[in-house]
């Protein structure tokens, strides 16, 4: 196990208390809303911030513990990529990448050659003599990645590495980052509030809310079975909590949902908005899950219209723009919403 940490930081109202472990070659994404303590966690892992308690162990070496062992950041083997690249503006791009080698005693010419090699690897060959200010956002973030990886660190920390980029650049840099993370042999921790980054780049996801881990698992598990409203919204699901008896779940907010599996005890019910169908009158046949609801808001969302509904059950339905027009719905309108029992995911709380 290459990184093992337990981090406790108390900052006013927020108490961060997170345990994590990352294997060699593994990428862990720490996903959470702003203010959840993600960046604080990363600063502790880097040695830039002293935690109030806990320990940080890298490759079996305790670099921070309660017994008074505090290895400062500059004596650790780590690379860090920041949200807004933080390339030193007074140094050339190549000198930025060579910086970590020079501070660790490499000769100028050797450092320069290694830096040029890395610039080549991240697709910036020939741009080494430029100033960071002369690079585009995507190029600067690539250079920052090269600067972090150049010393072959045992630990790679990425703090929202893509969120300062525009949507198109983000797509290409994300793909490149994925490739470099695949080649990287150490442990990597990625902090992000973007579920797409976490899903695309990480082997495992840790969801942190209000300073605590609320969910951990592979990206697929987290996407399929969210355990908090925050995660559910991120992955585009509606999350309902209830208690299962047979194939029926009595929701905590009243009402009930029919499910396809036999369930017992406290469960979560996850509904995909595209599986919710809307009707002006009660649908024919006998679908088991049908509720009269009120349309609260309708917002265009790509090719569909996302309809937020209120009533017995708070649901969200994605209907095509055409059906939405045919239904002729306006906010405040009464609709019937139905969802097949087989379309509802249910899992223990």
């Amino acid at each position: 196990m290459s990184l093992a940490a337990h981090v406790v930081v108390r900052r006013g109202a927020l108490t961060l208390d997170v345990e994590l472990a990352v294997a060699d070659g593994e990428v862990l994404a720490v996903l959470g809303p702003n203010g959840a303590g993600k960046s604080t966690l990363l600063r502790v892992l880097a040695g830039l911030l002293a935690p109030d308690g806990g320990r940080v162990v890298v490759d079996g070496d305790r670099v921070w513990d309660d017994a008074g062992r505090h290895v400062p950041a500059h004596q650790r083997s780590l690379g860090m990529v920041f949200q807004d690249h933080l390339l030193f503006p007074h140094l050339s791009v190549a000198d930025n990448v060579a910086f970590g080698l020079r501070t660790r005693g490499a000769r100028r010419a050797d450092a320069r050659a290694t830096a040029e090699g890395w610039l080549d690897r991240v697709g910036l060959a020939g741009l080494g003599d430029r100033r960071p200010g002369q690079l585009s956002g995507g190029q600067a973030q690539r250079a920052a990645l090269a600067r972090a990886l150049v010393g072959d660190p045992r630990l790679l920390l990425l703090d929202e590495p893509l969120s300062a980029l525009d949507a198109r650049t983000r797509l290409t840099v994300r793909a490149e980052l994925h490739r470099h993370l695949g080649d990287y042999a150490g442990s990597a921790v990625l902090v992000t509030h973007d579920p797409v980054d976490a899903m695309a780049l990480a082997d495992r996801v840790l969801v942190v809310e209000d300073g605590r881990v609320v969910q951990a698992g592979t990206p697929a598990e987290v996407a399929r079975r969210p355990r908090t409203d925050y995660v559910a919204r991120l992955v585009g699901l509606v999350l309902l909590a209830g208690t299962g008896t047979g194939t029926t779940v009595a929701l905590d907010g009243g009402s009930a949902v029919a499910v396809a599996a036999q369930v017992h005890g406290p469960v979560f019910v996850a509904v995909r908005p595209e599986s919710v169908a809307l009707y002006l009158s009660r649908p024919e046949g006998s679908p088991r899950n049908v509720w009269p609801l009120r349309l609260v808001t309708a917002t265009p969302h790509g090719p569909v219209v996302r309809c937020d509904l209120a009533g017995e059950v708070a649901l969200t339905a994605d209907v095509t723009a055409t059906s939405f027009a045919e239904l002729g719905l306006a906010p405040g309108a009464q609709v019937w919403a139905s969802v097949k029992a087989s379309e509802v995911a249910v899992y223990p709380r």
């Binding site: 880097a46 040695g47 500059h74 970590g100 010393g151």
Partner: peptide, 14 residues
């Protein structure tokens, strides 16, 4: 911006 100094520390600079 003091974060440049953080960046330098992560690159091994005392």
């Amino acid at each position: 911006d003091a974060r440049f100094e953080d960046a330098a520390a992560t690159l091994g600079a005392d």
